[in-house]
């Protein structure tokens, strides 16, 4: 018995001519936050909908908690929570009623439900708005309600489909912290986004998707290690001599070194110690360092290298 919470094998989903998922496979381990990163239309939501058996797919195999998932897998569904991409709440119910209703689909006991609903409200910080109808909530608050509705019943597996779209940075951070807390509480999480920063911030593993395919997967560092594009280091340091330059060049993980107008430019492979290694050499020689810049490669660079295009052409 493996600890795989989700295993998707060779999933194919077609919309008429369009192939939304093209032999897509993925695994999620227990307690993990898996990020699905991909541009609009890459198939993130489609993947989730197939896993949840809301959407019929053409071929492939989906197991959740080791069991085959079907529309009638009520025992599995009981363990799952979902925060859909589009806010899905009843306009005619208040914040409290919405959470209570959706939690009630899972939890029959009134007392227990009351406790869970209040916990969820506190979790997303909507205490001051329990009597509000969704129409009166701001975009960010609405997103929080959307989250509360999905997690109140304390699911073991939670899907977040772009929960931070159109949310200000502060609320966004709250949401991300919340997700980390849920993981601490033992939940396994699938998180989709086209914001690479978010994915880098919270995900243990990332699958980069494009056109319905998984083009790369691994931890953030592993992914960055897969590409040639290196860390770019610039240090303003007057009076550098040839000897020092070649010394730097000899460091492992270093590709190119140049020095011009008092600025040392180094391209290094990905790694965490590059800057420190260089600074050590310079300081050994008693040189005065003025400014230091280091540009780390991003998941965007990873995406660029694998697909030849930017992850996001807007923004």
């Amino acid at each position: 018995m493996s600890s795989k919470v989700i295993s998707v094998d060779n999933l194919v989903k077609r919309y008429k001519e369009l192939i939304a998922l093209d032999h897509f496979s993925m695994d999620v381990d227990e307690g993990q936050i898996l990020g699905l990163l991909g541009p609009n239309g890459s198939g993130k939501s489609t993947t989730i909908n197939c896993i949840l058996s809301i959407l019929e797919f053409d071929s492939g195999d989906i197991k959740v908690f080791g069991k085959k998932m079907t529309p009638k897998s009520y025992d599995l569904k009981r363990l799952i929570g979902i925060v859909p991409q589009e806010v899905a709440v009843y306009d005619e119910f208040t914040v409290y009623e919405n959470i209570d209703f959706f939690c009630g689909l899972y939890i029959k006991d009134k007392e227990e439900r009351k406790k869970l609903v209040n916990e969820a409200i506190a979790f997303v910080g909507l205490q001051d708005f329990v009597k509000f109808k969704p129409g009166k909530l701001s975009g960010g608050l609405l997103r929080r309600l959307n989250i509360a509705c999905g997690i109140a019943h304390k699911p073991k597996l939670i899907f977040f489909d772009e929960p931070t779209v159109a949310v200000d940075p502060q609320s966004r951070n709250n949401i991300l912290e919340g997700i980390l807390k849920l993981r601490q509480g033992g939940a396994t999480i699938v998180y989709t986004s086209h914001y690479m920063e978010e994915i880098e911030q919270i995900c243990d593993r990332v699958i980069i998707m494009d056109k319905g395919q998984a083009i790369a997967s691994g931890t953030v560092d592993e992914l960055k290690g897969m590409i040639k594009k290196s860390e770019l280091i610039r240090i303003e340091v007057p009076g550098l001599d040839e000897d020092t330059l070649s010394k730097i060049n000899e460091l492992k993980n270093i590709y190119t070194v140049s020095y011009e107008d008092n600025i040392l430019k180094v391209e290094a492979g990905s790694g965490k110690h590059n800057v420190i290694d260089i600074i050590n050499i310079l300081q050994d020689r008693g040189l005065r360092l003025k400014k230091i810049f280091s540009e780390q490669p991003t998941l965007n660079d990873v995406f660029l290298e694998f697909t030849g295009k930017e992850l996001r052409d807007d923004l």
Binding site: L52, S53, I54, P71, K72, Y74, D75, K77, R78, I80, I82, P84, E86, V87, A88, V89, Y90, F102, L105, Y106, C149, G150
Partner: peptide, 19 residues
């Protein structure tokens, strides 16, 4: 029907354990 326009809530009910 999760795909019928405004009623996105259908998605929530259909992933729930209620038949």
């Amino acid at each position: 029907q999760a795909d019928v326009g405004e009623r996105k809530v259908a998605m929530r009910t259909s992933v729930s354990p209620v038949s």
